[in-house]
Amino acid sequence: MGPALRMSTEFIAGVIVGGGIGWFLDKWLETMPLFLIIFLGLGTAAGVVNIIRAANALSTNAGADKGNDQGGSPPAKM
């Protein structure tokens, strides 16, 4: 359950933050649907980026654990 929940929160957070930024820009500039649509798209992309990073970190750690049980895994950098 742990990794799966992590992926879903990463994705949802991206979408919500993107949508939120768009909504506030629209409130501020009074251009209602324009920025909401743009930033919802960007937010979804950011969510996908988040998931790819989380998955990369997960597989890096799994590979390091398999390689040596000393746990000397390099910092998971993407």
């Binding site: 929940l5 992590r6 929160t9 990463e10 949802i12 957070a13 991206g14 919500i16 933050v17 993107g18 930024i21 930033f39 960007l42 937010g43 992309a45 950011a46 969510g47 980026v49 988040n50």
Partner: peptide
């Protein structure tokens, strides 16, 4: 733009994960 949104989404995903679990 995508990187900035991804960065800003960190506190949200961090807090929601702990709270939801």
């Amino acid at each position: 733009a995508i990187e900035v949104i991804s960065y800003l989404s960190r506190p949200l995903s961090l807090s929601v994960r702990l709270f939801a679990n």
